[in-house]
């Protein structure tokens, strides 16, 4: 049974349909990548899974529970078993690295200060930032901030972690560190990971399963190898990062020559 089971999910913002009846399964213990061009609703999908948004139609079951019908209390109980890594890191800016990682433990447990210290140092050690525990978020680089956020996300030993664009804006070393951490933490802690990204090479290098989403539909799914051999020209264009193809380089416009020779007032 999949950890996350999405059936007939429809979600709209105003008149714009973000998801149009999509079905999607996130298996347990695997790294699943959700890929697609910018603006296709990948982050929205994570927010729907986390219960921060509610779908107009369809169901989202996480560990057998229908997220959109849960009470606030039950949803919060479920979220204690879900970690989320935001694109910005979302660290609390008035707290040090140590306090940020200790935050979920202090909020949800009655553990002693010494036990919290042990757990925090262990989590920081796992992301390589035990030595940075006194720093404030403003003193961290983008890559370090995400690693701290990752340590915070695993503090309560969740069953799954959702990564929102974890590779965006990272230098090659930071990117390599995060790629490796996602895979290692998933395997070492027995997690299930959902990685939302449009960085094809990095996501494909660690994913067991990839879903490609566009225009509110799941265009293709399968292992990275299967997608590389896909016959869909759209998937091929996306996987290879070609500038023109089924997704045109040019925004829809009237004929170029007619436009150049047209009326000066038509701007």
């Amino acid at each position: 049974m999949p950890l996350v089971e999405i059936r007939g999910l429809t979600f709209c913002r105003g008149n714009r349909t973000i998801f149009d009846g999509i079905d999607l399964d996130i298996p347990q213990g695997k790294v699943t990548a959700i890929m697609g061009p910018s603006g296709t609703g990948k982050t929205t999908l994570l927010r729907l899974i986390g219960g921060q948004l509610r779908p107009q139609e369809g169901t989202i079951h996480v560990d057998g529970q229908n997220v959109s019908t849960l009470s606030r209390g039950d949803l919060y109980q479920l979220r204690k078993r879900m970690g989320m890594l935001f694109q910005s890191g979302a660290l609390l800016t008035d707290m040090s690295v140590y306090d940020n990682v200790a935050f979920p433990l202090r909020e949800h447990t009655e553990l002693s200060a010494s036990m919290i210290r042990h757990l925090v140092l262990m989590k920081l050690e796992s992301v390589g930032l035990r030595g940075a525990r006194q720093l404030m978020p403003s003193e961290l680089s983008g890559g370090m901030a995400r690693r701290v956020a990752l340590a915070r996300a695993i503090t309560l030993d969740p069953m799954m972690i959702m990564y929102d664009e974890p590779f965006t804006g990272q230098d090659p070393i930071s990117m390599g560190v995060i790629v490796s951490l996602i895979r290692k933490l998933n395997d070492a802690m027995g997690l299930s990971s959902i990685v939302v990204s449009h960085d094809v090479a990095e996501a494909a290098s660690i994913a067991d399963l990839i879903y490609v989403i566009s225009n509110g539909k799941v265009v293709e799914s399968g292992s990275p190898e299967q997608l590389k051999c896909s016959e869909s020209p759209w998937v091929q264009q996306f996987m290879k990062g070609e500038p023109d193809g089924p997704v045109p380089f040019h925004f829809a416009a009237k004929d170029y020559v007619d436009d150049l020779l047209g009326d000066v007032s038509d701007v």
């Binding site: 921060q52 979220r79 879900m82 979302a90 915070r152």
Partner: peptide
């Protein structure tokens, strides 16, 4: 949003 996802 981060707090909400940490069930706070």
């Amino acid at each position: 949003s981060g707090m909400e996802m940490m069930a706070v």
